[in-house]
Write a protein that binds this DNA or RNA. Structure first.
Lengths: 244, 244
DNA sequence: TCAAAAGTGTTTCCCTTACACCCATGA
DNA sequence: TCATGGGTGTAAGGGAAACACTTTTGA
């Protein structure tokens, strides 16, 4: 988010953005055999939240989601999935935003658009942890990876959003074959298996897993091997570029 | 929709409703071995559309969707699923609404809230065809079932919404075991199979289908049988009430 | 030589597929 | 008696589960 954009967002009437609709993004990464989530911290308040944003008046919803995640990660062409729309009235809670804006020296008027009720479209993003440069923005001060199991308390219903995103990721993992988006371009079957085991939170049998993945016909074995451990060198694989 | 509500909706500023968000509902029914969809026709315009509506300022999104479908079907406790949020800018097309409002004698000002861009949360509903009393509302004049394969041209992107709803129904059919919602409380396995065949648009093997359904353990065979044809009387089944 | 991880072989088991057969019923 | 649709039996096929074995490499 640029400073200009930040000024737009903090304008009282929210000129240029759609009203009552927001985007919340659960950005998943995979590192050290742990699932990570990208979280924003608003300094001087101790408040944590999911990266999110709003939709410009002439902007596609999916483009807005891509933009939001791009701004926090520095990446382009990110794998994104709409997974749920959070629209309960009970989730409406302007208190944290009021606190945040006040802490930044902009005590907002009661009728400020950001303090109105929002319905939030939930997206999860799958990114290559090693390629991400988490970057904060003028209106908040830190943007960092957190272990999924060691998340701080989040504002509003953001914790439930993360859990629902994880549920969606789990059910889509095999159906849509999306796990690869969390790994670098080239990876071993062992790394892929540890990813699956982490997401699904259960052990998988190695022979079965290897055969299953290879039988899908979407992996390409790279001639070059990898080395480093006191054991047989595994093959590297990558996504097969689908034939047109 | 009552007349009072209709007046609220046609007020220029949309007081009492969330801005820029709408709901579109694809209500599926099953009759004569055909999938049916509930459509609205705006008279004096020849325009057809999906039932839809808006969210009140203090209303849950899912409650609003239930309300929209209730109003058109006369039912309560309807099976509803969010399946996608349609948010492309390209779908913004105020022309048909302008036509409709003009045809009803309310030529709207350009800044009328209904002519603004909306992001639409798509729901599909599964209802018992025999229990539905399709009912129109003051601002439109007919609400009827249409064969999925013989739908008229719909306004905006509503035709694509129907197709995407059907896709979602197909992928969820086995995963969520939701097909039963399209049948009366008591049904034969033959009826259930014809429902599945219609939705999936392919023939299924009878013995396999029966065993699969029964092995799920969610069907309860009712002692009473049904009669009428020149053949063995099939058993009636119903959803087993899940034990708490 | 050994431990560790990778890759492959093999057997068992189960579910699905495919087809056959019997049952009940009305014309 | 026959056609029609409903229910069940059964054998074959395919894939997953479980386990064994070999291979490669560094300590």
């Amino acid at each position: 988010m640029t400073t200009t954009e930040a000024n737009e967002v903090s304008s009282t009437n929210g000129q240029g953005f759609l009203k009552n609709i927001a985007i919340d993004a659960v950005v998943f990464g995979f590192h050290d055999n742990q699932l990570k989530v990208l979280l924003i911290e608003y300094k001087r308040t101790g408040l944590f939240a999911l990266p999110g944003g709003f939709i410009r008046e002439s902007e596609d919803l999916n483009v807005a989601a891509m933009r939001v995640v791009s701004e926090r990660t520095g990446l382009e062409d990110i794998y994104l999935d709409q997974f749920y729309v959070f629209g309960d009235y009970g989730r409406f809670d302007p208190t944290p935003l009021k606190t945040i804006m006040t802490a930044n020296g902009n005590k907002p008027p009661e009728e400020h658009w950001l303090l109105k009720r929002f319905i939030s479209v939930g997206y999860y993003a799958l990114v290559d942890f090693t390629k991400v440069s988490p970057s904060p923005a003028p209106i908040f001060d830190s943007c960092e990876w957190y272990d999924l199991n060691k998340m701080p308390v989040l504002i509003q219903d953001h914790t439930q959003i993360v859990h629902k995103a994880l549920d969606a990721l789990r059910t889509n993992l095999d159906r849509k074959l999306i796990g690869f988006n969390l790994l670098p371009e080239e990876f071993t079957l062992g790394e892929l298996q540890r990813l699956y085991e982490t997401i699904l939170d259960k052990k998988l049998l190695r022979p079965a897993f290897q055969r299953k993945m290879l039988s899908l016909g979407i992996l390409e074995r790279i001639a070059k091997k990898w080395t480093g451990g006191a054991h047989k060198a595994p093959y590297l694989y990558r996504f097969k570029v689908q034939a047109l």
